Every structure is written in structure tokens, then in C-alpha cells.
Computed example of a mutant assay.
Amino acid sequence: MPMVGAADKDIIVVLRDSNLPQTDVIDTVLPFSSSIVSARELIAERVRAECDKRLPAGMTYRLLRLDTLSESEKASFQAQLDAAGETVELQIERALEAFETNGFLLLVDETQIENLDEDIRLGSGSVVTFVQLTPLVGG
């Protein structure tokens, strides 16, 4: 994986999980070794960080739309994933599908990213925001 690593000049990016209205905002940082990544790579690395437990507890399960589960439900879900042998790659595919079906918005430095293959320029201190969308009842 060439994107994230211990390169001499890591780019430190702020990952922000948010919902609408912004009542629940959680920030953390993640290093990237390349200043240009695709949205696909950015989402994949976010999922890998979640799976590797490099993210704070409040940021886990967000991209898979499981943030409304209780802690015991999350533990049960994780046990099911483990029992099923679900791989990180499958979780990445689910997150990419959620992006494509408007399960969440991706903003980089306040600019909405709309295409998985769009090149994104990151700088140290760039803010990458994952905005959780809540479906409306009845529509």
C-alpha cells in the first residue's frame, strides 16, 4: 500500500466525522505519504484505519452506517463480521458503495468530492470531512 506509510514527509490530514445538523463532530488525524490521492483511496484508507483501530471509538462504524447502534450491538455486529470472515476489502467495497449511493458526503477542505476517481490534492492540515446523511422518513 503506497499511500500511507512512514515517509519522511508525511502529510497529516484531519479526518472529521460529522452529521447533519452538526451535533456530533469527531476529529482525528491520519498521515498520508502522497499529496494527491483519489476519493476511492481516501475512503479506503479511512476504512483501513477504522479496521486497524487507529481511529477513536466514536469514529468507528460510521462509513458503514452503523453509528446508531449501541455498544453491545456494535460488539455483536463485529463478532458476526469476524465469524463470517469479512475482510477489510469487503468493508471498503461497502463504504465505496455507500459513497456512490449518497450514504455520506465527502468534503476536502470544504469542497464536496463527487467522484470516486477524482484526484484530490492534500496538504498538511487538510480537513477531510465525512458527513453522515440521515434518510428522511417516508422519502
Rank of each mutant, 00 (worst) to 15 (best):
P31R: 02
R94K: 05
L63N: 03
A7V: 06
L96D: 00
L30W: 06
L136W: 12
V29I: 08
A39T: 11
V108D: 00
A39Y: 05
I12K: 12
D119M: 09
F99D: 11
V108S: 00
S33P: 02
V137M: 08
Q78L: 10
Q132L: 06
T134S: 10
L81P: 00
F99K: 11
S18H: 10
A39H: 05
S33F: 03
I113G: 04
V25C: 07
G5T: 09
S35Y: 04
L81M: 13
I36A: 07
E71V: 13
E41W: 04
L69S: 04
V88M: 05
P2L: 11
V128W: 00
L63S: 00
K9I: 12
E118N: 03
D82F: 01
S34P: 00
V25Q: 09
R40T: 05
T101C: 04
E41Q: 15
I11T: 12
V127H: 00
N19H: 08
G125M: 09
Q80M: 02
T23D: 06
R46P: 01
R16N: 13
E71W: 09
S72T: 10
R54W: 04
D109G: 01
S35D: 10
P31H: 01
R16D: 07
A49K: 07
V37P: 02
L42E: 06
E93L: 05
F32K: 02
K74L: 11
L81I: 02
Q112P: 10
L64C: 03
A95Q: 02
